[in-house]
Computed example of a mutant assay.
Amino acid sequence: MANNHDIETYSKLGEGINFYLSESFHYLNEVLIYEYASIIFSKYIDKIDPTEADRKLIENLSLPDNPVELLQTDSIEAISDETASQMAASWETAQQKARLGQHSFGHQHEINSIEILGHLNNFGFFIETLVNRHLLFLNHINEIDNLSYSRISTARIIDRLIYIFKDDLKLNKVQINEIVNLFSLRNKTVHYTPDNAKALKPKLSELLKIWKQTKKVVEMLEKKEKFSEDNFSELLEQNINKIIQRWK
């Protein structure tokens, strides 16, 4: 098994790890920019006074209670063109301000933006690729024989982690409960059912716990590997700090 992979494989896996980590926090930053823009926008629209035309439209507005009937409604005119233009301009300004600004959401903030799918998926891929590379490393240094490697490398990601850290888990030197939670959240994105779409609202505090536990796990992998390359635990720490400094 070890003979099937050389330095190029490690290089490709390293590139993948770096890519997934970068993309995961890119999506999270976009999530928080959007949600901050929504906060700014809500303040702007509070200052937009409805026109007489708006009042007449609202008085005559009749919306179906059934969501399917609502989706099948050809057109809904609830505000005047004048007000719609003001709201569009306000939303544009809100997005510009949010992209350049910062905001304190608080750890209990629930994330509702659809881009959270990008963060959860890519962060999961980040962990999974690190684990895959470490298993290959263990095979190359003969800590895992070829038969065991072929079996464990295709197991569920949590089973792979348990295999790698079986001794440390017994001694309580490492925990993976938050990482288990991450993959539970990611499963909701993979199986994006109506119930999962409604339930997927992770809190910032939840994500922070996942990141911190992941950093500990990555540090333990790196300590054993001793690769002379980019330190992924440090890169993760940098990304965490950027989020905390701008959005905590």
Rank of each mutant, 00 (worst) to 15 (best):
I162Y: 11
N121F: 11
Q96P: 00
H103V: 10
E143W: 02
N139P: 01
I157Y: 01
D145N: 15
L161S: 08
I116N: 04
T154L: 07
I162F: 04
Q102F: 00
L169S: 04
R160V: 04
E115D: 12
F105G: 03
Q102I: 01
Q102L: 02
L120P: 03
W91Y: 13
L171N: 14
I152S: 07
N172F: 11
L135G: 05
L169G: 09
E128A: 05
T93H: 10
F126R: 01
K97V: 09
I114W: 04
E92D: 12
A94Y: 00
S153I: 10
G106D: 03
N112V: 08
N132Q: 15
L136Q: 13
A155V: 02
L136A: 09
F105D: 01
R151S: 08
I164C: 06
K173V: 05
N112H: 13
W91M: 15
E110V: 02
D168N: 15
E115N: 14
E128D: 15
D168I: 02
I164K: 07
R160G: 02
L161H: 07
I157Q: 05
R151I: 14
A94D: 01
F165C: 10
H107R: 04
R99M: 13
T154C: 06
I152G: 06
R156P: 02
S150D: 13
D159W: 00
Q96N: 11
F125R: 14
L147N: 14
L117K: 15
K173I: 06
A94R: 01
N121L: 13
Q108Y: 04
D145F: 12
E143I: 10
I141V: 14
D145A: 11
E128L: 04
L130G: 05
N172Q: 14
N142Q: 15
H119V: 09
H109R: 11
L138N: 07
G101S: 06
A98W: 01
S150T: 10
K166G: 02
N132D: 15
S90T: 01
I127R: 00
Q102S: 11
N172Y: 06
K170W: 03
G106C: 08
L130E: 03
T93A: 09
I144P: 01
S148H: 08
I127V: 14
